[in-house]
Nucleic acid binder design. Structure first.
Length: 255
DNA sequence: ATGGCCACCGAGGGTGGA
């Protein structure tokens, strides 16, 4: 089973890239973030023609998440319970006995801002809900744009207190690991300076000024089934790309 | 690296992203 996550930064703009990429990589499950479209205009027909079922949780202009799957999708859940929020950031569903949680984490804008406080509160609510979700679904993947670079090795420069790397954000990431989740990318030896996001400005992609902020976390029963995890930079090289690259993990069918 | 890009809405520049 091949599971991917990709922040497409507008599904409408990126649909041609997505369809080409689905044909090339044939992932079983794809978690998408930043759809920036309402559910009523979600491109179900185009994705069905490509062989994918889809469930979505979108809104106009901002946010929005979806799960695509070549196999049947069941038990769909939207949003964080017990956390009042108009922003569409979470969708979960079950595919082939695996619970897939797709999340677009809060950016936070700047350390100390109102949005930063919202980020930390949202992270706490996510973690509490995931503990509950894991108790019901031990075989679980948390996939998405975390907007957190967990370690210094995940940042191209020596940042310490900035947004996306600040100690409280990294503590929140470790709290997710504390639920028994493992960062799939770090289960394997990896080259240095592998990132998933590069600013559109300053030729950041060409200079590899990036951050590793998109992640696939595997619950304890799933982690031993992972055979590889990698970032696919190819779509980031195309004309009019998303600023994020997809991340993929492959799980054996055994277990 | 931090003005510099990209996408949004809507009809021009303001907002948000990370």
């Amino acid at each position: 089973m091949k599971i991917a996550t990709w922040n497409v930064n507008s599904l409408k703009v990126r649909l041609p890239h997505l369809l080409d990429w689905l044909a090339a990589e044939a992932p079983d499950v794809v978690c998408l973030q930043e759809l920036k479209c309402e559910d009523r205009v979600f491109p179900h027909a185009e994705l069905a023609a490509a062989g994918y079922h889809a469930v979505c949780n979108g809104q106009k202009t901002y946010n929005g998440v979806a799960i695509l799957s070549r196999h049947e999708i069941t038990a769909v859940h939207r949003d964080l319970p017990a956390f009042a929020d108009d922003q569409k950031r979470v969708i979960a569903a079950t595919v082939g006995g695996v619970r897939i949680v797709c999340a677009y984490f809060v950016n936070g804008q700047a350390v100390g801002s109102d949005k930063y406080a919202y980020k930390l509160a949202w992270l706490e609510a996510l973690t509490a809900w995931l503990a509950d979700e894991l108790s019901r679904h031990p075989r679980l993947v948390l996939a998405g744009d975390f907007n957190i670079a967990p370690e210094d090795a995940d940042v191209h420069a020596d940042w310490k207190e900035a947004i996306l790397v600040s100690p409280p954000e990294r503590a929140a990431f470790r709290a997710l690991l504390g639920l028994g989740l493992a960062d799939a990318f770090r289960l394997f030896a990896q080259p240095e300076k592998i990132y998933t996001w590069w600013d559109y400005r300053m030729m950041a992609f060409r200079r590899n000024f990036g951050l590793r902020i998109d992640h696939l976390l595997l619950s304890a029963p799933l982690a031993p089934q992972a055979t590889r995890c990698w970032v696919d930079k190819a779509p980031r090289k195309l004309e009019r790309p998303s600023d994020h690259a997809p991340v993929l993990v492959e799980l054996t069918d055994a277990g």
